[in-house]
Computed example of a mutant assay.
Amino acid sequence: MTEQPDVPAPISQPTGGPACTLCGGPACVHWQRRLTDDEFTEYLHASQSRRDELTLLADSQQAPPDFGPLPLPADCTRAVYGCVNHAVSLDAASLIHTKTCTAPNAKDLPHCDCTPEPAPPPEPDPTPTPLPVSWGGTGKA
């Protein structure tokens, strides 16, 4: 009788982590979209409630907390997740989508039905710091 080599057990699917917004499967890509009007209203309410609570709990002998202005719609995004079958393209995932974007809608993939915001301009390369004269540099930029 010959011995069979040990066969490793199959790797199970991960159970934690984000799930695809469309089907609930394990997500492999995510992108951002702006909050809908209802989501933004809910977010503002939660932000104001948190500020009110912190103000109530603040030390009365100290200056009151200064939270700055409440966020604007342009300050808020929500993550959208897609599995292998419901992922947008890498180029589309790198941009912020509109609040009405339907991705991951299966009929539009690997694209979406909105025009995402343009990517921010690339940052210029920083100017190198000149070497000190003692290191053989000129000391000038």
Rank of each mutant, 00 (worst) to 15 (best):
S89A: 12
I96R: 06
Y81D: 04
C83Q: 14
E42C: 05
T55R: 05
L54E: 08
P69V: 01
A79H: 09
C83K: 13
E53R: 15
P26I: 10
T77D: 10
N105M: 06
V80S: 06
T102W: 00
A46N: 14
P73I: 05
P64W: 01
A46D: 12
A46C: 04
Q32Y: 07
R51I: 06
Q13I: 11
K107H: 08
P104V: 07
R78W: 00
T127W: 00
L22V: 02
A93G: 13
E3Y: 03
S47A: 02
H111R: 14
T77C: 08
S94L: 03
A92L: 10
S134Y: 02
P116L: 13
T138S: 15
D91P: 02
P8S: 14
S47C: 11
G68C: 07
V88D: 11
D52N: 14
S49G: 11
T138F: 07
P5G: 12
P132C: 02
R51W: 01
G136A: 09
T15A: 13
P64N: 05
E117A: 13
T41L: 08
P14Y: 01
D59K: 10
A141S: 14
T100H: 07
C101K: 09
L131D: 12
P124I: 04
A79D: 10
T127G: 06
C112D: 12
G137S: 06
D75R: 10
L57F: 02
T129P: 01
L54Y: 04
T100D: 15
P126L: 11
P64T: 02
L90Q: 15
A87F: 00
A103C: 10
K107D: 15
Q4T: 12
H45F: 05
H111P: 07
A92C: 11
Y81F: 15
C101P: 04
E123S: 07
R51P: 02
D91K: 12
T98C: 06
A79S: 12
N85Y: 00
T127V: 15
G137C: 11
P132Y: 04
V88I: 15
A27R: 08
T102H: 11
L35N: 07
D6S: 10
P121C: 11
P73Q: 11
C20R: 12
A74K: 09
T102R: 07
L35I: 03
K99I: 01
H45W: 01
I11H: 11
P71W: 00
D125K: 06
T129E: 15
P26C: 10
D6A: 13
T115A: 11
F40M: 12
L109P: 02
K140R: 13
E117Q: 14
C23T: 05
L54H: 03
L22N: 06
R78L: 06
T138A: 04
S49A: 13
R50E: 15
E53C: 01
G82A: 10
P132F: 02
S60R: 05
Q32C: 04
P116N: 07
R34K: 13
E53N: 03
P110A: 12
S49K: 09
P71K: 08
K107M: 09
N85W: 01
P71H: 12
P132L: 14
D113G: 14
P5I: 08
T138E: 08
P116R: 09
T41F: 00
D38S: 15
T36D: 10
D113P: 10
T36N: 14
A79Q: 14
T115E: 12
A9G: 09
E123C: 05
G139Q: 02
G137L: 06
